[in-house]
């Protein structure tokens, strides 16, 4: 079996919203870091995040990356998580038009089968809370 080309090693962190926190200055990170960007400490402690937050910016992508998924277009967002860090991701197709400041929660979705391995691939997306 071939190796998938996407970085499956980060899946458990991505799909479960596990970030980490600096044990010295308490800055929270998602994705995890091994060195604190603010104070340089390497004492980092895992921390599960809620995945809830608000939209900081958004775009509708009309030309998806090669072989990305079956959709012709979808919304991409940067979300400011309630615990502090900002992360980019995509929105589930709920029919609600995004706007800056709208609240979102995480939503796990099956993306498609990985083209190399045939294994299902999941993505943690965001869903607008009406």
């Amino acid at each position: 079996m071939k190796e998938p080309t996407y970085n499956y090693r980060e899946d458990s962190e991505k799909l479960n919203f596990v970030g980490n926190e600096c044990n010295k200055c308490h800055k929270v990170y998602f994705p995890k870091r091994n060195v604190c960007r603010d104070c340089g400490s390497t004492e980092m402690i895992d921390r599960k995040l809620s995945g809830n937050g608000e939209i900081y910016s958004y775009t509708q992508i009309m030309v998806p990356p090669e072989d990305f998924n079956d959709k012709e277009s979808y919304y991409a967002v940067i979300v400011k998580l309630d615990e502090g860090p900002r992360v980019s991701g995509i929105l589930v197709d709920s029919g609600t038009t995004p706007d800056i400041g709208l609240r979102v929660k995480p939503a796990l979705r099956l993306m498609k089968k990985d083209k190399e391995t045939g294994l299902p691939r999941y993505q943690m997306k965001f869903e607008i809370i009406d």
Partner: peptide, 25 residues
């Protein structure tokens, strides 16, 4: 970032679009 931007479906024009949208805001 290959695994935290591109693999998630965020293209290069998409990144600048996110900057543009926030600049407009």
């Amino acid at each position: 970032d290959k695994s935290w931007e591109l693999d998630d479906g965020i293209t290069f024009p998409g990144l600048y679009a996110l900057m543009a949208r926030r600049h407009m805001h």
